[in-house]
């Protein structure tokens, strides 16, 4: 993110363990400021005429105030239980857009927007326990004397060309010995026959 150095960052959080006991809508107050005549407030006026009653009924815990102001661009102020206050401009909004924005602000927690470092957060440690270097460690290591020659060696060592050659020679010798042995036994058998 280009603005990541300046935007506040953190983990998702919730005020007052909201939802563990019961859910409280965090939006406590909303003030609609609009003009009764100007064109930019038309959507807000439509919203007030048609949708405001049902919005207020759906959110009985939110107090809705209407504040007509002459020749001012319309906006609404959302106030939250944690003391935060936000002003949202609704210049040239349609009635439908007003519903969407108000619903967004009614479902928010009021904690200022931030860049999430993770999309989840828990205060509880992991259920199976946090990993440590001791987890699943071989108990034999407790009584090992360090430095240990065996453990100091690399886990997997590549053979050098000389070693490989020597091994091949050795193998050849063994196989040739075997052949000789076979010949001997054959001759012995022949002698017996």
């Amino acid at each position: 993110m280009s603005s990541s150095r300046f935007t506040p960052k953190g983990f998702p959080s919730v005020p007052l363990q909201n939802g563990i006991g019961r859910y409280i809508c965090q939006l406590k107050r909303v003030t609609l400021r609009f003009c009764k005549s100007s064109g930019s407030s038309r959507g807000v006026r439509d919203f007030i005429e048609t949708e405001l009653i049902s919005f207020a009924q759906d959110h009985p815990g939110t107090v809705v105030y209407l504040k007509p102001r002459r020749h001012k661009s319309p906006s609404f102020v959302a106030e939250y239980l944690n003391g935060e206050r936000e002003v949202i401009s609704c210049h040239n909004f349609s009635s439908h857009e007003m519903i969407k924005w108000l619903n967004l602000y009614a479902t928010r927690s009021g904690i200022p927007l931030k860049r999430y470092l993770k999309m989840w957060h828990t205060e509880c440690p992991s259920i199976q326990g946090v990993w440590s270097p001791f987890t699943n460690m071989d108990p034999a290591l407790n009584i090992t004397q360090f430095p240990s020659k065996k453990l100091s060696n690399p886990v997997w060592e590549e053979k050098s060309a000389t070693e490989e050659l020597l091994e091949k020679v050795k193998q050849q010798k063994i196989s040739s010995d075997d052949e000789n042995d076979d010949d001997n036994t054959h001759s012995n058998r022949a002698a017996q026959v």
């Binding site: 409280i24 406590k28 107050r29 009985p60 815990g61 939110t62 107090v63």
Partner: peptide, 10 residues
Amino acid sequence: SEIYAFSKRL
């Protein structure tokens, strides 16, 4: 209205 909303909120 604030008092009404308070009880409804809870």
